[in-house]
C-alpha cells in the first residue's frame, strides 16, 4: 500500500515534468510536410538542345529566345568555321498560365514563321506522378517558296504542322531524361520521295556537372524517312550555363534548322564526317 502511494505521488507529478519539457515552441509548428511537393528544374532551358523540354514559362512571364546555328564547321577557315552561313531564330514565348504557353517565332531558315502552343498536363511530384507530361504543337509557314520557281504553288503548300508529347522524369538531383514521340506533317516536302506525314521518337537528357553547368543531349529517330533521303537523324550535344536569371545553351548539332519539322525532317549535317554546326540558345526574361 505504501508503494501504491509513492506511485500515486509520482503519477501526480508527471504533468509537471511534462510541462517542464514542453517549452519548445518550434516543435509545435514544425509539422508541415514537404512530401507532396512538385519536382523542380528537370530542365533549365525551354529546349534540351533542339527538342522542346518540359520546362514551361511561368504565368505572365515573357521569354525572348535568340537561337543561332553557324554554318558547318567542316568548311574551315574559308568562311571562318561557319560564321558566314548562320541561321538565326527569334522566338517570343508567353506564359498565359504556368501550364499554358504560347509562342511566335521567325527563323531565317526558309524564312519560316511559326506559332506554337505548349500545354502541361501532368507534373512530376514526390508521392505524385512519376512523370511530367507536356504537349507541344506548332504550325510553320515557309515564306521562302517562290511561285516563279514552283508553278502551281498554293498558300497551303507553305504550311507544316507538328504535335509532340514530351514525357520527362527527373531521376535524381543531377539527371533528367525525356521521351518525345512526335508526329509532323509537311504539306510540301523538301525531298520528293518523302511521305508528308512523318513520325519520330525523340530522346533527350540533361546531366548536371556542377551547380551551374550541365551537359545536354538529344536525338530524333525518324521512323519513316524515305529510303534514299539525303536528310539525317538529328543528334545534338551541348552545355547549359545558368547564372540565376538566365540560361545560356552552347552546343554542336548536325541539324542547322531549329523548328520541330525542320530539324527532324531536314537535317543535312553528318557527325561521321565532321559536318556539324556550332550554335547557341540565349534567353532573356521580361
Amino acid at each position: 500500500m505504501l508503494e501504491m502511494r509513492k506511485l500515486s505521488i509520482l503519477i501526480i507529478l508527471i504533468p509537471f515534468f511534462a510541462l517542464a519539457q514542453e517549452d519548445d515552441l518550434l516543435d509545435e509548428i514544425d509539422n508541415i510536410s514537404t512530401e507532396d511537393e512538385y519536382e523542380i528544374a528537370a530542365f533549365k532551358g525551354l529546349k534540351i538542345v533542339n527538342f522542346e523540354s518540359t520546362k514551361m514559362v511561368s504565368k505572365k512571364q515573357l521569354f525572348f529566345v535568340v537561337s543561332h546555328r553557324f554554318g558547318s564547321v567542316k568548311t574551315g577557315i574559308e568562311d571562318f568555321f561557319g560564321l558566314d552561313q548562320a541561321v538565326t531564330r527569334l522566338n517570343f514565348i508567353y506564359g498565359i498560365s504556368d501550364g499554358i504557353n504560347i509562342g511566335i517565332s521567325r527563323s531565317s531558315f526558309q524564312k519560316t514563321y511559326e506559332g506554337s502552343l505548349k500545354l502541361r498536363l501532368v507534373r512530376q511530384g514526390r508521392g505524385g506522378s512519376p512523370f511530367t507530361v507536356v504537349v507541344f504543337n506548332s504550325v510553320l509557314m515557309n515564306t521562302a517558296l517562290e511561285e516563279e520557281i514552283l508553278p502551281g504553288l498554293k498558300f497551303e503548300h507553305r504550311l507544316s504542322y507538328s504535335t509532340q508529347a514530351l514525357i520527362s522524369r527527373k531521376l535524381n538531383k543531377n539527371l533528367s531524361l525525356q521521351l518525345a514521340p512526335t508526329f509532323f506533317h509537311d504539306n510540301l516536302v523538301a525531298f520528293n520521295g518523302q511521305e508528308n506525314s512523318q513520325y519520330t521518337i525523340g530522346i533527350g537528357g540533361r546531366h548536371k556537372l556542377t551547380k551551374r553547368w550541365s551537359i545536354n543531349i538529344d536525338y530524333g529517330l525518324h521512323l519513316n524517312r524515305a529510303a534514299n533521303s539525303p536528310f539525317k537523324n538529328p543528334l545534338s550535344i551541348g552545355f547549359d550555363l545558368e547564372t540565376g536569371g538566365h540560361v545560356f545553351q552552347l552546343h554542336f548539332t548536325n541539324a542547322q534548322p531549329m523548328n520541330t519539322n525542320t530539324f527532324l525532317g531536314q537535317a543535312t549535317g553528318d557527325w561521321g564526317n565532321g559536318d556539324i554546326f556550332f550554335g547557341f540558345n540565349l534567353s532573356r526574361v521580361f
Binding site: D24, L25, L26, E28, I29, D30, I32, T34, E37, I40, A41, K44, S58, Q61, K211, R212, E242, G244, G245, H246, V247, V285
Partner: peptide, 23 residues
C-alpha cells in the same frame, strides 16, 4: 518561434527562384 518553407519564397523571375532553391 517561426518556420518558413524555402519553396514558399517567390521571386519575380521564376528561373531565379529555381536557381535559389536548387543551387
Amino acid at each position: 518561434a517561426s518556420l518558413a518553407l524555402i519553396k514558399g519564397f517567390h521571386f519575380k523571375n521564376s528561373l531565379m527562384e529555381e536557381h535559389f532553391n536548387e543551387n
